[in-house]
């Protein structure tokens, strides 16, 4: 099987890779690019732990072949984290208690950022809808929703 020549812009950096066409975007991020913030919770698009932004939109990176992303721009949790600090969404999740085991957190962060990019002033309903694809088994979501809503408040 011939390798596929993949060009991606990941977190602002142009990357050229030779990959097995079977690899998903998540495989490439974790195993080829050493970006392990995106987590594999189900590998079937049902849990959202692998959420990244593809050309600015939140997607489950386990459900797309990396080859299909050729020429695209990918942003992962590593890409939105400022050096030595936290993105407002990360900060809110930390401070409001929206993180327990943390396995879902990077995906939750990226889904929330995707949501806020589209809708900077979401209602609670918007947040609950927008994060419905991100399962969390620890928190009951209440503090996560509060955290995302507080980001909106602090911006306003």
């Amino acid at each position: 099987m011939p390798k596929f020549h993949l060009s991606l812009t990941v977190n602002g950096e142009a990357r050229e890779l030779l990959i097995d066409p079977r690899r998903t975007l998540l495989d490439v991020l974790r195993d080829e690019l050493d970006l392990r913030g995106a987590h594999r919770g189900c590998d079937s698009g049902d849990c959202g732990a692998c959420t990244v932004l593809l050309d600015g939109k939140p997607i489950t990176s386990c459900m797309i072949l990396a080859a299909d992303c050729d020429g695209s721009t990918v942003t992962t949790v590593e890409g939105i984290t400022p050096a030595g600090g936290l993105h407002p969404v990360q900060k809110a999740l930390v401070e409001k208690g929206g993180i327990q085991c943390g396995f879902c957190t990077p995906g939750m962060v990226m889904a929330a950022i995707g949501l806020l990019n589209e809708n900077p002033n979401p209602t609670e309903h918007d947040v609950r809808e927008g994060l419905a694809g991100n399962l969390c088994r620890c928190t009951g979501y209440k503090k996560i929703v509060e955290a995302v809503l507080s980001v909106e408040e602090s911006k306003a």
Binding site: L35, R36, G37, A38, H39, R40, T76, V77, E78, T81, L86, Q90, L93, V94, E95, G97, I99, Q100, C101, G102, F103, T105, P106, V109
Partner: peptide, 18 residues
């Protein structure tokens, strides 16, 4: 806030799969 939360929020935490 949980002491381990910032690393979890930024994807730095090392889980078994990592």
């Amino acid at each position: 806030p949980k002491l381990d939360a910032p690393d979890k929020a930024t994807g730095r935490t090392v889980y078994g799969h990592d």
